[in-house]
């Protein structure tokens, strides 16, 4: 994690208003060097607008931002940034390879840079086909290939797995992990929370244009819980209170059975089970449950699961 403390992208209360509508409202976030930062939020939450501001495609109405120590959208920042925002945009009458050659030229790179980028996304054998004939997944991969041109220090990927089949999604996950392992910083937005959970070091959650959480994936998920189902419930609660030092709140599991969820930290399943049995509790289930990122996300954004 060397170098992880250097901030590559930082925004300071950036906002974007379109007339009376506020798309992004005072977002302050920081992406550190070498990390994979997941930017999460429901549709219309302001993710893409924020990423567009980071890339200088859209000017903030207020607030400021810095990308690789330079102003967003400046050549100094963009030369070291690769981006795929809101779908790939290429010339439909040209092949994927020629499209990449054009983008390589815009970067001041030699044409052969296109071949390496195509190979990175497994499109080398279809590079000669016209872009308009590509499937959605191939177009997406070409967009990622364009973002990889010149091995930029920072990658900004907006929904990079859109349109990909399961194999393509797995390949994209591997690619992002490899990029991060190679020292590149990745800022990505995604609706696929299981994917974010697997590959992101930290996440920022945006809802209604506001950043409502920023931290590690574990911090967002919270700690694991020990779920206990025993009868009688009153005695079960008493034993758990003794073990944890706090009175547990009863809840219902997926089948409607009364259960108790208590923080699992410091508890050992055999010891808890033994204590419950000793207290005369009929133990139906004792299990450690990891909280999924999706649950945390839905709770945070107020969306019912």
């Amino acid at each position: 994690m060397n170098g992880m403390t250097e901030t590559v992208v930082s925004t300071d209360r950036i906002s974007k208003r379109y007339g009376d509508r506020t798309a992004v409202d005072g977002v302050t976030l920081a992406v550190r060097r070498g990390e994979v930062y997941g930017f999460l939020g429901p549709n219309g939450a302001g993710k893409t607008t924020t990423l567009r501001m980071v890339l200088g495609l859209v000017r903030p109405t207020s607030g400021s931002a810095s990308v690789l120590g330079a102003a967003p959208g400046s050549p100094a920042a963009l030369r070291r940034t690769g981006a795929l925002v809101e779908g790939p945009g290429f010339y439909p009458y040209l092949s994927g390879r020629t499209n990449l050659r054009i983008m390589a030229r815009y970067r001041g790179l030699p044409d052969r840079a296109a071949d390496g980028a195509l190979a990175r996304v497994d499109l080398a054998d279809r590079g000669g086909d016209r872009f308009r004939g590509y499937s959605l997944g191939m177009k997406q991969r070409l967009g990622v290939a364009a973002a990889l041109l010149g091995s930029p220090d920072l990658l900004v990927l907006d929904e990079p797995t859109n349109g990909l089949d399961p194999a393509g999604m797995a390949a994209m996950r591997r690619l992002v992990v490899d990029l991060a392992a190679g020292g590149q910083t990745v800022l990505l937005s995604s609706h696929l929370l299981a994917e974010v959970q697997q590959i992101c070091d930290r996440v920022g959650v945006i809802a209604g244009g506001r950043l409502i959480h920023e931290g590690t994936v574990d911090q967002m998920r919270g700690g694991a819980v020990l779920r206990v189902r025993g009868e009688p419930a009153s005695e079960t609660a008493r034993v758990l209170a003794r073990a944890t030092g706090a009175t547990p709140e009863p809840a219902l599991d997926e089948d409607g059975n009364p259960v108790f969820d208590v923080p699992a930290a410091g508890l050992e399943v055999p010891e808890v089970t033994r204590a419950l049995v000793t207290a005369g509790v009929d133990v139906h289930a004792v299990a450690v449950r990891e909280r999924a990122l999706e649950d945390a996300f839905l709770t945070m954004t107020g969306v019912a699961s």
Partner: peptide, 21 residues
């Protein structure tokens, strides 16, 4: 319409230079 300006502008030449091309 194609979204190519967006792709071009994120390659870093600067908008003025891109249009100059």
């Amino acid at each position: 319409g194609w979204g190519t300006w967006k792709t071009v502008f994120t390659q870093g030449p600067g908008r003025g230079s891109a249009l100059a091309g």
